[in-house]
């Protein structure tokens, strides 16, 4: 299976950082793939988001391995990982942490919440109350927590991987647009193929493969690589392409709500990571095309006509992608 990480493309430019990045990314990919079988594209997008320092929203029916993916990705990196099971009675302070009065020292002492980890897995995020969900806002966007007027820096790298179930809507609080916008990408797992499922039954019959998963890298390495990704070259014409694409979502009659400027920003960041994963030191339109659906689909709202036609926003985005001309000349 073509993963995109085992690409035949030899890196043409760039030095050791890119080579290291490819090696590390390939290791993570292999590690995660040993747990999540037959989902190379999904894993790849997840790794891309990790390197772009974004947050990932995994949305699918129960039992396809959403949580497994999140945990496997977290486990493959040697770093603190926290898992939060979102429930209606979960309080914001459970996430951010709370100041507790210490009787001994007679001072307020900050007890960090679940958010203080490099990778936070938020399970069934739409089951928590909006109040709790919004507690995630500041953390995800700014990488910091403010409790009782004191601001605490979060760890770097910091990645939130939230899962949600689109089927059981009773007693849930769908994520508001603002919060959805903070996730860099949304992916769906989808059902595994027949052979992949058969393999899964074989290997997962005994103990969970998650337990045998050994970390392949550590947080500082990931952080360093992520910082390198931001230096990749995106030519002016390519940046224009992204602006054109995002602008088209705003003017399209098939969409009620177009993509935000933040979406454009995150699309560029994700594209850089995607290019880095292929060992390129510059972004090409293919990078953008590969990420338009995961990065933009959850940010835009379909119009009534689109909904009536049972078209997903991803379909609409693919149409737009065909219409927007690719920049040819270097500007």
């Amino acid at each position: 299976m073509h993963s995109g990480l085992e690409t035949d493309t030899q890196p043409r430019h760039g030095g050791t950082s890119l080579d290291e990045l490819r090696t590390v990314a390939g290791d993570i990919h292999r590690a995660v793939s040993s747990v999540i079988e037959g989902k190379s594209e999904v894993v790849r997008t997840a790794v891309t988001v990790l390197l772009a320092e974004g947050h990932l929203l995994i949305e699918d029916v129960p039992g396809v391995g959403k949580t497994m993916l999140a945990k496997a990705l977290a486990r493959s990196i040697d770093c603190p990982m926290r898992r939060i099971q979102f429930t209606p009675d979960l309080l914001p302070s459970d996430i951010t942490g709370v100041s507790v009065f210490n009787q001994d020292s007679r001072t307020f002492e900050f007890r960090p919440g679940a958010i203080f980890a490099n990778i936070v897995v938020g399970d069934e995020i739409n089951r928590a109350s909006p109040k709790t969900q919004s507690a995630l806002l500041e953390c995800m966007e700014e990488g910091q927590v403010t409790v009782d007027g004191t601001t605490y820096e979060l760890r770097r790298p910091f990645m939130v991987m939230a899962t949600q179930n689109p089927i059981e809507m009773e007693g849930t609080f769908p994520l508001p647009e603002a919060q959805r916008d903070r996730f860099m990408a949304r992916i769906s797992m989808g059902y595994p193929t027949g052979t992949a499922e058969l393999d899964m039954l074989d290997t997962h019959g005994g103990r969970s493969p998650l337990e045998t998963l050994r970390p392949v890298t550590d947080a500082p390495t990931v952080q360093r690589l992520a910082e390198h990704v931001t230096t990749l070259h995106a030519s002016p014409s390519l940046r224009q392409y992204i602006v054109d694409l995002v602008g088209t979502t705003r003017s399209s009659s098939a969409l009620r709500l177009g993509a935000s400027p933040r979406a454009a920003l995150q699309l560029l960041r994700a594209s850089r990571a995607h290019a880095a994963l292929e060992g390129r030191d510059h972004v090409i339109p293919e990078d953008v095309m590969a990420l338009v659906a995961p990065v933009l689909a959850h940010r835009v709202l379909p119009s009534a006509e689109t909904q009536m036609a049972h078209r997903s926003t991803a379909d609409v985005l693919q149409d737009l992608l065909r219409r927007v001309p690719v920049p040819t000349a270097a500007r």
Binding site: H13, H233, S237, H282, V283, A330
Partner: peptide
């Protein structure tokens, strides 16, 4: 194609 691509999208220092 790679030459064209690099010419279009790579950093101008190349």
């Amino acid at each position: 194609v790679r030459t064209l691509e690099a010419s279009r999208y790579a950093a101008p220092t190349t």
